[in-house]
Design a protein around this nucleic acid. Structure first.
Ligand SMILES: [Mn+2]
Ligand SMILES: [Mn+2]
Ligand SMILES: [Zn+2]
Ligand SMILES: [Zn+2]
Lengths: 172, 172
DNA sequence: AGCTTATTGAGAATTTTTCTCAATAAGCAT
DNA sequence: ATGCTTATTGAGAAAAATTCTCAATAAGCT
């Protein structure tokens, strides 16, 4: 499972990072969320803990946490972040493009051999998770409707008509 | 292998799309490139064939071609595009984050069983390729240097000091 | 309590993607 | 060929996402 906030913090300070309030806030948000979060979500939640935290700081902290191996970056239309699983070996993420849910695909003999195939080719995966984008079971089922626009030109969301910017981020 | 331009065009018009000069230009660019291209690259090349082609049109065409299954979208820092392989079943792309090269991982028993695992979970991968981001052999070798900034805050490129925008795209 | 300097916040600036709408041209039918 | 209908385009604005700048702040260490 995931490391507790305390452990992440200790790890960071050991490597020389300062343990600041904004950083703690972001970490806490990510630990408490039991799922992947978008930047917007992280920012909003972090501000409840640390009202003055800035946008750039959140980006910087996420970048740092990812680089240090505490986060996994999930690339959908826009990036999302979730705690890295202690399971350090290469594994798989099933990412639903509709509801953004990220499901871990447990390590099995099959996935193992795929890992071997990568080594054979001297390809070094970065990050410890391979992302497979698609539709989760739930979304797939009730998705018969808005699934396949014939001439597209319709694309976007599935959940709301809100401009897209889930919250106060855009310019002004 | 990849379909020739002619075939893609026929397929499009069959489905009801008009075969316009801008579209033909984009298709030609993609077919002639033997690798994945960034939007900038596509735009520049397309303009050599069709000088007045607009940015939005390129985006729209890429979106359309992808939706029609003629392109595969590769998501690195920014998206790239390459011709879809006729190999329609789920397969893997080894994407080098350094040099952007995309290598196909041929379908083997291992990859097959992974596909089965996805079906078992009722997860429907979108697009026919799973992308595995990492470092290719070449980049990995001569990468000892700029590989791992201790406190990051240094990240970016590896190839040039150019602002990042490889060419005339940005605002003005 | 004082020092040093990593880190922050605010806002500007970039970069990337999407949208708007009048003008254009592809495909089809004379 | 000529004309119609309307999908598609180009230009620019706008939106969205990310990165940068720099003075002010506050961790961590004495
Ligand atoms: Mn994981
Ligand atoms: Mn492929
Ligand atoms: Zn879903
Ligand atoms: Zn490479």
């Amino acid at each position: 499972m995931h490391k507790p906030a305390r452990e992440i913090e200790k790890s960071l300070s050991t490597v020389g990072y300062r343990l600041t309030r904004p950083r703690r806030a972001v970490i806490k948000v990510l630990v408490q969320a039991r799922r992947s979060l978008s930047l917007d979500e992280i920012l909003i939640r972090a501000r409840k803990l640390e009202p003055r935290i800035g946008l750039a700081t959140v980006y910087r902290t996420l970048e740092m946490l990812t680089a240090e191996g505490h986060l996994e970056e999930v690339r959908t239309r826009t990036k999302r972040y979730m705690l890295a699983c202690s399971n350090f070996s290469l594994h798989f993420h099933l990412v639903c493009e509709r509801c953004q849910t990220v499901t871990e695909l447990p390590s099995t003999p099959e996935t193992q051999s795929l890992t071997a195939a990568l080594q054979m080719r001297n390809f070094e995966p970065c990050g410890s998770a391979v992302e497979i984008l698609g539709l989760c079971e739930r979304c797939r089922n009730r998705g018969a409707s808005e699934t396949k626009p014939v001439h597209l030109r319709s694309s976007p969301p599935h959940v709301s008509e809100i401009p897209h910017n889930q919250s106060g981020l855009s310019k002004k």
